[in-house]
Design a binder for these strands. Sequence first.
DNA 1: AGAAAATAGTTGTACATTACAACCATGCAT
DNA 2: ATGCATGGTTGTAATGTACAACTATTTTCT
Lengths: 170, 170
Amino acid sequence: MHTEPSTDTRKLLLLITDLCQAARFCRQDSVFCEGVTFSQFLILDALATQGRLKMTDLHSVLAVEKSTTTRLVRPLIERELVQREKADHDLRAIYLRITPTGKETYQKVWGCFTEFAETIRGKIPEDDRTDAYRALKTILDAIRNTSSVCSCNPNDSMKLKNGKTEFNIT
Amino acid sequence: MHTEPSTDTRKLLLLITDLCQAARFCRQDSVFCEGVTFSQFLILDALATQGRLKMTDLHSVLAVEKSTTTRLVRPLIERELVQREKADHDLRAIYLRITPTGKETYQKVWGCFTEFAETIRGKIPEDDRTDAYRALKTILDAIRNTSSVCSCNPNDSMKLKNGKTEFNIT
DNA sequence: AGAAAATAGTTGTACATTACAACCATGCAT
DNA sequence: ATGCATGGTTGTAATGTACAACTATTTTCT
């Protein structure tokens, strides 16, 4: 059986659409609680399970740019769920540690997330579960490891976004 | 074999983390071209394949709030990739139609996306492919159909959001 | 030792995605 | 009619995100 490429492309488009919707859904406030967003929960989780971490470590946990990490962490520090510590071996680095309050909050939020996770789990036939997880992981990895700079994109200097035009006259 | 809940919850957390990253990745500019974003591509696709559509129809295609639809469509109209038409049977409704320019752009972007899709497809073992797609769909649907308002969330009035503070660590 | 390069982190800026609430115009039902 | 429902836009704002510029420190190489 030969799969026609364009049909398959469309299948992937639909899947990715669903994927984006699901991702959106998972980050909704209603999934969490205590005023903690998904990213913040990930940070708390990393700190709670791995102990003291540097900002750099968080970059890879969150897979975001360093400036983004700074901004994601900020509200946690303001709320004193996380605290900053100077690293003595390197004055540039900053360690983060979860505070006792942070730990409490983390546990509550973990509770919320567990409810959510259990509901989802309940909707996946038990027999399929392991396979489904594995399959999902395969696809997600495939997506993430695709470094696609689309070939028709040689020079996006005059990209039109939201009606605002920039002309590069050289 | 009994699956321990908390382990399984963690498994789902990791999966969802990956999911969000993948979704983010898929919407990157590098996947598309012609200055069209993922959502805009979806709109063009819907119009190209289904012909004239009302804003309302797009709400469900995109699964977003109506105000969001308005804003997503706007740049396409400004760039004249899509045009608005009054519906005569209902003066409130507005029909959208893809323009010839829009169709051209759509085809180019579809090309970009095809490249992307093919790269991904190449990374999923052929035997697994059908199963993987199905499994993914199962999980995504499970997620989307989970109406989780977490029970510890009676009143999130005192939420602290991204304030602006300068760090002072001494 | 001193200059150059690399690394850690913050801030400025900007954009994408998204929602809720308020609003306007039109259509429908009682 | 009058009032509720529907389709759409605008105001406002939160969240996530990146890139570039900058500071401060550390490392590396001459």
